[in-house]
Design a binder for these strands. Structure first.
Lengths: 185, 185
DNA sequence: CTATTATTGAAACAGTCGTACCATATATTG
DNA sequence: CAATATATGGTACGACTGTTTCAATAATAG
């Protein structure tokens, strides 16, 4: 007896809260403006998520989920040479449409350096990428369980993203990726 | 006539505030705890620096100055092969003693993505590194004004620092740098 | 209907934040 | 000494924070 719970509301709120965080960033996130933008109240956010920290965790998990889905959609591992695949990854991740995700990645990383206790599984996100990239670049790996090649590829991508988001110099960063591709041959 | 100003106080405060920021990070920086740790008061911090934002700018400038000095001290550009120099840079910047600086770099970068208006010269920091690294790797540059090689080298270093600070896996990141050195030959 | 459970609004609490105001102390010059 | 400029302490303001408390509403079951 009694009124039945509505689990769909929490999910809908989570989806729209993730949109909001991607648009506005994590740094200055505050419950009242978030609730106002979502047409709800801080009261309801806490009712559904328990605390701000848990809400943030849920949002980050959702953002990760979305990113992984988009990546999987746009990167069929069987297409073309390793070089073409690397260029494809770079073109995709460095596109302006991915800027909100890229910013969130760097924001979470920086926040994790300041407050590691909030990110008990921060190494896991890296490991997940390796599984994907390890498979994508299996043919240039030196051994079947080579983690060094994906580490280097990821480092180049993240380092160039750092540069691009700081300087906005797309031409120079694109050419640096060209240079890396040449080295890989 | 009148009591003479004491410019040394501001400098001493700036030096110790920089120590504090390097130790505690930029993210949650607050005037009251900072002043307490420095044995002064928020009142005096604002008296000397005008506003928190100006204090932060001064601290970041000081931290940059220190980093540049340390880098110049530890990296004579004339020593050894390019590969040895790259390994030297990596060994130096990835050492645990540099962790506060590395964290600050990533914190400032992330903050700049969220609030670009606070960092009118954010591209400049990158450019400065290029002057240093461009000189350090002049012999592997393709042309005298080659900016692509330093861009790639810096990207690898920053990308591996991102990885190392997230996973703490020094062995894997070290080996990824080895791999990059092989590619450069 | 009543009982029960979920949902939601309004307000307040306890704290932090950067900063401004006002008075006072201190050190110097004439 | 008085006059003057710098250096400080104390305090409070207004805005914000996450969270809690209290009450009211809504929807279902019996």
């Amino acid at each position: 007896m009694g009124r039945p719970p509505d689990p769909a509301r929490r999910e809908a709120t989570l989806a729209r809260a993730t949109d909001y965080v991607l648009a506005h960033g994590l740094a200055g996130l505050s419950l009242r403006p978030l609730a106002a933008a979502l047409g709800t109240s801080p009261r309801m956010l806490l009712y559904d998520f328990g605390s701000k920290q848990e809400l943030v965790s849920a949002v980050l998990a959702e953002a990760r989920r979305r990113g992984a889905t988009r990546l999987a959609e746009n990167l069929p591992p069987e297409a073309g040479s390793p070089e073409e695949r690397l260029r494809g990854i770079w073109a995709w991740i460095s596109a302006p449409e991915r800027a909100p995700y890229v910013r969130l990645i760097f924001e979470v990383h920086a926040d994790g350096l300041a407050r590691p206790e909030n990110y008990p599984d921060r190494a896991e996100a890296i490991t997940n990428w390796f599984d994907t990239l390890g498979a994508t670049f299996r043919d240039i790996a030196t051994t079947p369980d080579d983690t060094v090649t994906p580490t280097l590829v990821m480092a180049v991508i993240r380092g160039l993203l750092f540069d691009l988001t700081t300087t906005g110099d797309r031409h120079r960063t694109d050419r640096a990726l060209d240079r890396f591709c040449e080295l890989l041959r």
